[in-house]
Computed example of a mutant assay.
Amino acid sequence: MDWLQVAVLAVVQGLTEFLPISSSAHLILVPVLTHWDDQGLAFDVALHIGSLSAVLIYFRKEIGRMLVNGLKAVSGHGINEDARLMIWIVIATIPVCLVGFLLKDVISHYMRSTLIIGASLIVFGVVLGYADWRNRGTRSEYQMTWKDALIIGAAQVLALIPGTSRSGITITAALLTGMSREGASRFSFLLSIPVIVLAGGLETITLLQSPQAIDGPAMIAGILLSGISAYLCIHYFLAIIKKLGMQPFVIYRVLFGAWLLWFFHF
């Protein structure tokens, strides 16, 4: 890999992992449009580490409170809002783990076409636009219920379809349950932690079992660039949606999806 490829892939991953525009769609399409060779599994692991580091650092206070109060709850000291939020994250993660494990081969072999990616960008973008347009919710992530967690977790399963966007579909579901834009987005970002850990863990196991050579400098650069861009993305996204909502991302999704369908299929 040359340094331009490292920089482009790392920044694309960092920015699109948390924006509701589908990281998988962009990472699948970058090699197609640039004719670069596949970046390899080792670099994919590095990008996941960078994204994970960003969300852990950004939400370090919330995560610390959830862990401390979660342990207190296990030891019989009662469940407060932080421990409850951790429980909702666990509940919302279970559906995508089960379905992803059962259908991973089907998804990887049959659902990564530009037709599916383009259609998913448009369809789920319009649904996000509707959810944001009708949203009058004021509840934060700390005011969720177990039913909200199940609904958001079920919606997250749809993110297994390339082009859907994990953050996009979970924010959509959270808005439809009556959460505020900020609350929906913050819960979506926190919900990404176990998903990234599990996905990165599976990739790491596969990597350790393969004879693939590892480009150390490229991996370090990928971790740093994806981590920095992801951190900035989270920070500015939460600021932007207070004023503009989700509609700029909806417009981008629809235009990008339409372009993909036109470019590859017409």
Rank of each mutant, 00 (worst) to 15 (best):
202 L>V: 10
216 G>R: 05
160 L>I: 04
160 L>Q: 10
46 A>T: 07
192 S>E: 02
76 G>P: 04
251 I>F: 14
131 A>V: 15
184 A>F: 05
114 T>F: 08
252 Y>C: 02
146 W>A: 10
96 V>T: 07
187 F>Q: 14
197 V>A: 00
82 D>I: 07
73 A>P: 11
125 G>M: 13
50 G>D: 11
218 A>G: 02
83 A>Y: 13
85 L>C: 10
149 A>Q: 10
128 L>N: 12
103 L>D: 03
64 G>W: 03
107 I>D: 05
179 M>Q: 11
184 A>P: 01
146 W>E: 13
109 H>Q: 02
117 I>E: 14
53 S>D: 10
91 I>P: 04
235 H>L: 05
207 L>G: 03
236 Y>S: 00
90 V>A: 15
264 F>T: 03
255 L>C: 13
139 R>W: 14
243 K>R: 10
44 D>Q: 14
218 A>T: 00
118 G>E: 01
73 A>R: 12
118 G>D: 07
206 T>K: 11
137 G>H: 08
151 I>L: 04
100 G>A: 10
20 P>V: 12
212 Q>E: 09
48 H>E: 14
167 S>F: 13
148 D>V: 04
121 L>T: 03
221 A>C: 04
104 K>P: 06
141 E>Y: 15
149 A>I: 02
80 N>A: 04
54 A>I: 05
63 I>Y: 05
150 L>M: 09
58 Y>S: 09
170 T>R: 14
153 G>R: 09
132 D>S: 00
22 S>F: 01
12 V>H: 08
8 V>H: 03
62 E>C: 03
81 E>T: 02
93 T>E: 06
145 T>E: 14
70 G>H: 06
151 I>N: 03
189 F>M: 08
34 T>L: 12
183 G>F: 02
47 L>Y: 04
18 F>P: 15
47 L>D: 11
182 E>V: 11
257 G>A: 11
140 S>E: 06
74 V>M: 05
75 S>Q: 03
111 M>P: 07
185 S>A: 15
86 M>Y: 05
75 S>Y: 05
130 Y>W: 15
223 I>H: 02
254 V>W: 10
242 K>F: 08
207 L>P: 06
106 V>A: 07
196 I>V: 01
65 R>N: 11
182 E>L: 07
62 E>D: 02
239 A>E: 04
45 V>R: 05
85 L>M: 11
177 T>S: 13
124 F>K: 12
181 R>Q: 13
105 D>P: 06
248 P>K: 11
120 S>L: 03
172 T>S: 15
218 A>E: 07
226 S>I: 02
235 H>C: 06
44 D>S: 15
241 I>W: 05
3 W>R: 13
189 F>K: 06
66 M>D: 08
76 G>K: 07
42 A>H: 06
260 L>V: 10
79 I>G: 06
167 S>M: 13
132 D>C: 14
229 S>A: 08
50 G>Q: 14
125 G>Q: 15
117 I>Y: 12
236 Y>N: 11
42 A>C: 06
72 K>M: 04
2 D>K: 07
40 G>N: 03
250 V>Q: 11
78 G>K: 01
56 L>P: 01
117 I>H: 14
49 I>C: 15
